[in-house]
Simulated scan of single mutants.
Amino acid sequence: MTNHGIWARANYGERHHHGDDLMSEHSVDVGGRRLHVVSHGQGAPTVLFEAGLGCSAKDWALIQARVGQVTASYSYDRAGEGASDESGPWSVQGWLSDLESWLDALSAPGPYVLVGHSIGGHVVRTFAARHPEEVAGLVLVDAQPERLYDDWTPDRLRHVRELNPPGIFDRILEACEFVKAATRPMSCPLTVITHGVIDLIQEEPGVTAADVDRFEQSWQTFQMDLAKQSALGRLVVAEASGHMVPTQAPDLIADEILAMVAQIHE
């Protein structure tokens, strides 16, 4: 794994200093596979970072470095990403099981503030639905809306399916259906951060400017709907960031997480 200045590769439980930071890396067994987990800081609530599709713990590095100065935090590489072992075709159910397994293996204490980017929002929302008593708050970062594709025509679905590696888009659709059935309104604090720069979809052959505008309007409408899932929900726009908010606007995310932690402490 590349050293991004926040941590270096280590054996289970080994600790590393980076300035005033103290990071720990763990190789955790989950049913015969190993997941790479990074912990930083002490205190409550515990902040859990869940990355987007194709992303890993390193995308949270700058944010976790700040959050870990205030409270306990954990990020990790999902199966097949970063330094974690493969597990075969992914599903939100499988990811959720892995998350529960490594939290148990490390005795990572709740309550949790769950931070999910993109499709990682599916994972933290289903975890919150399954363990509501353990969740102190959620921060959804340009999270995948589960109803985004509901009104798409077969032609549009086929076009997007062809743009992705085989099977990926179908698994995304399956994940959306799982989240629809599993999630429910929340009573905990909720912050929804959405992108301000349009880069999720671009004009190209078969995709018109009207298509881009329609997709963006739907995405932003669903982000507002997500914020309404809690009476304590709020919407924040990362004005200068595209979809990769964790790496393009890390300070904004860290500020929102730390504000929520402070609110929980009140």
Results as ranks from 00 to 15, higher is better:
S84G: 09
L140Y: 15
F215T: 07
R147V: 13
V113D: 10
S187W: 00
S241D: 09
P145C: 09
L235Y: 10
Q144L: 13
A136D: 15
E100C: 03
E162P: 00
G116N: 05
I6D: 04
S87E: 07
V135D: 15
L96F: 04
P189L: 05
G54L: 06
V261C: 03
D251Q: 13
V207R: 03
L148A: 06
Q69I: 07
L157H: 10
V124Y: 04
K228V: 15
L138Q: 14
V141Y: 11
F169N: 08
T247R: 11
M224E: 14
A79N: 09
L235S: 06
V245K: 14
V139L: 07
Q93L: 03
H26K: 01
S107I: 12
R125E: 12
I63G: 02
S107K: 11
A128T: 10
V47G: 04
A65D: 09
A8V: 09
P45S: 13
G5C: 01
D104L: 08
T208P: 02
D251K: 12
R9T: 11
V92L: 04
G13N: 02
Q144N: 07
E266C: 06
S39G: 02
Q42K: 15
G121Q: 03
G167L: 08
I172V: 15
S24R: 02
Q202K: 13
R214E: 08
L35C: 06
G31V: 04
E177Y: 04
V236E: 15
L35S: 05
L96I: 05
W95T: 09
L140V: 14
V236D: 15
Q248Y: 14
L106I: 13
R33N: 04
E25C: 01
R158A: 15
P154L: 06
E81C: 07
N3A: 04
L190V: 11
D155F: 10
P89S: 10
R9G: 01
G80M: 07
D213W: 02
Y149W: 14
K228R: 11
R184Q: 12
D151Y: 01
P154R: 11
V28I: 08
G110L: 10
R130W: 05
D255H: 11
S230C: 10
L173H: 13
Y74M: 09
T126V: 06
C55L: 11
R130L: 06
A182V: 06
T71A: 04
G82Q: 04
R171W: 01
L226R: 00
H195I: 01
G88H: 06
V37W: 00
E14N: 02
A143L: 10
A136V: 14
V192K: 00
V124W: 03
Q263Y: 08
L173A: 07
L96M: 04
Q217T: 14
G88Q: 06
L140P: 12
S27T: 09
R78L: 08
H159T: 13
M244A: 15
R234S: 12
H16I: 09
P166Q: 10
T221W: 03
M186A: 09
D225E: 15
D85Y: 00
Q217Y: 02
T71N: 03
A83I: 08
D29Y: 00
G121S: 04
V38F: 00
R161L: 03
Q217H: 11
Q263A: 13
P189H: 08
I257C: 02
E133D: 15
D213G: 02
G137Y: 14
G80D: 10
V179H: 05
F178I: 04
V113H: 06
R158N: 11
W60N: 08
Q202V: 14
H195C: 00
S187G: 08
R147K: 07
H243A: 06
H40I: 11
W7R: 01
